[in-house]
């Protein structure tokens, strides 16, 4: 439908270098679109991001219990934040879906607070000041694939509880209710899923 935006960015240089483990071109598409918004306030790129992510954000909020109207407002607001914060996006640190998930996650945390004082909510900073090591670019590009493979190797019921844990405000009891399972079963299923994920995803260099 639209011409692929092709900002000549350092991201392209990076993507050439990481070819052995490069994710599919499609996985990088959304990273490029966010960079186009950051570099040129590219409205076309934003429209494409919106069309891909807004319906997913809406679905996420509906599953967490929001009404369709509230879920759509949430998606609108989260995407406006994507527009505003695009310059903080760093493809070396997070893929587009992770970055947008984080923006949405911070917005939800903001909504959860019960008082109205205008205070900053703790955010997970994906755009900090850290010094990157040369191999970080490669390890970041492998990340999406690693995560995808790890999820594929979990049992379906483990992926299901994990998905619900990310969706629901009060994971354990709500998951138990929605799956009609005892609370203990849900807890042990989440714990087992986390143990498997750690075994598959934790890098040895990150061990404490």
């Amino acid at each position: 439908m639209h011409a692929e935006p092709s900002p000549l960015t350092s991201a392209e240089v990076r993507s050439d270098r990481m070819s052995p483990a490069a994710p599919a071109q499609d996985a990088l598409k959304y990273d490029r679109l966010i960079e186009a918004v950051a570099l040129r306030r590219d409205r076309e790129a934003f429209a494409q991001l919106f069309e891909y992510f807004a319906p997913r954000l809406k679905a996420w909020l509906i599953k967490s219990g929001a009404t369709p109207g509230a879920a759509e407002d949430f998606a609108q607001d989260a995407m406006l934040t994507v527009w505003r914060k695009a310059d903080l996006f760093d493809a070396r640190k997070a893929r587009a879906a992770t970055w947008i998930f984080t923006i949405a996650r911070n917005r939800r945390l903001d909504m959860l607070r019960r008082d109205a004082r205008p205070l900053p909510t703790p955010e997970i900073e994906l755009a900090g000041e850290e010094v990157r090591r040369p191999d970080d670019i490669l390890s970041m590009s492998e990340d999406t694939e690693r995560v995808r493979h790890a999820l594929a190797r979990l049992k379906p019921d483990q992926v299901e509880v994990l998905r619900l844990a990310f969706y629901m405000d009060n994971p354990h009891s709500e998951i138990a209710r929605s799956l009609d399972l005892p609370l203990g079963t849900v807890k042990s299923r989440i714990r087992n899923a986390m143990i498997k994920l750690r075994a598959m995803l934790e890098l040895s260099e990150e061990a404490s």
């Binding site: 319906p55 809406k58 879920a71 879906a97 998930f101 949405a104 990340d143 995560v147 790890a150 999820l151």
Partner: peptide
């Protein structure tokens, strides 16, 4: 874990 969240968001059927 946030990357897992991103992946799950990516896999969500759109509404």
């Amino acid at each position: 874990l946030q990357a897992v969240g991103g992946e799950l968001l990516d896999e969500t059927s759109p509404s």
